[in-house]
Amino acid sequence: MTTYILDASAIQSGFEALGFSEDLFSTPSVIEEVRNKFLAYNLSLAVSLDKIKLEIPAENYINHVSETARKSGDRLSDNDIGLIALALKRKSAGRVRIVTDDYGIQNVSSLLGIDFLPMGTEGIKEIIEWVYYCPACFKKHSPSIDICDVCGTKIKRKKRA
């Protein structure tokens, strides 16, 4: 049996958990991202009926995902990292797929050997490593920098060659 880890984008794209027979998981912080009242109601109903189980991943999984994202140059939110960390934890028990349209989540998941299932997009075609640089002075920067500390220009990113 496959375990599905749900991102907010999956829920907002129409993923219907109530009629689903597979194991469904998410994190409490992802659930809080759903803003549509109708979807939020259906989601809370699915959680209360135990169709979707909420779980917080352990710190060691979060650290591993954070390090992988840092190395690839992907900028992920804490919620995104937690979601992938949960999938990484569940992966030890069998097949896991993250249901998401977020390309950053798909990229880091692929690097960690976790399958993904896009809902409203085609999904990524290849794993990408990003390089962050200043287009004015060409200094390379970390993904956490938005403005070049040398010349003050907004940082851009490009695919590593």
Rank of each mutant, 00 (worst) to 15 (best):
21 S>Q: 13
45 L>A: 04
151 C>H: 04
28 P>L: 10
97 R>N: 09
156 K>D: 15
127 I>V: 11
3 T>K: 07
147 I>P: 11
130 W>N: 08
125 K>S: 10
16 E>R: 11
25 F>V: 07
9 S>K: 01
73 G>A: 08
7 D>R: 00
134 C>H: 05
91 K>Q: 15
125 K>Q: 15
105 I>A: 05
146 D>M: 10
79 N>Y: 07
103 Y>Q: 09
87 A>D: 02
131 V>T: 10
114 I>P: 01
82 G>P: 05
18 L>W: 09
145 I>R: 07
138 F>K: 13
2 T>M: 14
96 V>H: 01
70 R>I: 13
160 R>S: 14
86 L>W: 01
106 Q>D: 05
30 V>N: 06
115 D>Q: 10
70 R>S: 15
54 L>K: 02
57 P>G: 05
8 A>F: 00
95 R>F: 15
43 L>A: 02
84 I>D: 04
42 N>E: 09
118 P>M: 03
38 F>V: 04
99 V>H: 00
147 I>Y: 07
93 A>G: 12
99 V>I: 09
39 L>G: 01
124 I>A: 03
79 N>S: 12
96 V>Y: 01
157 R>S: 08
147 I>D: 07
83 L>V: 07
63 N>P: 13
111 L>W: 10
13 S>F: 05
86 L>R: 00
71 K>P: 15
21 S>H: 11
13 S>C: 04
77 S>M: 05
143 P>W: 03
111 L>G: 12
132 Y>L: 11
100 T>E: 06
4 Y>G: 04
161 A>K: 15
51 K>Y: 05
81 I>F: 05
59 E>I: 14
10 A>P: 06
23 D>E: 11
110 S>D: 08
51 K>R: 09
147 I>F: 14
16 E>A: 12
75 R>H: 04
90 R>C: 08
70 R>M: 13
133 Y>Q: 14
10 A>R: 01
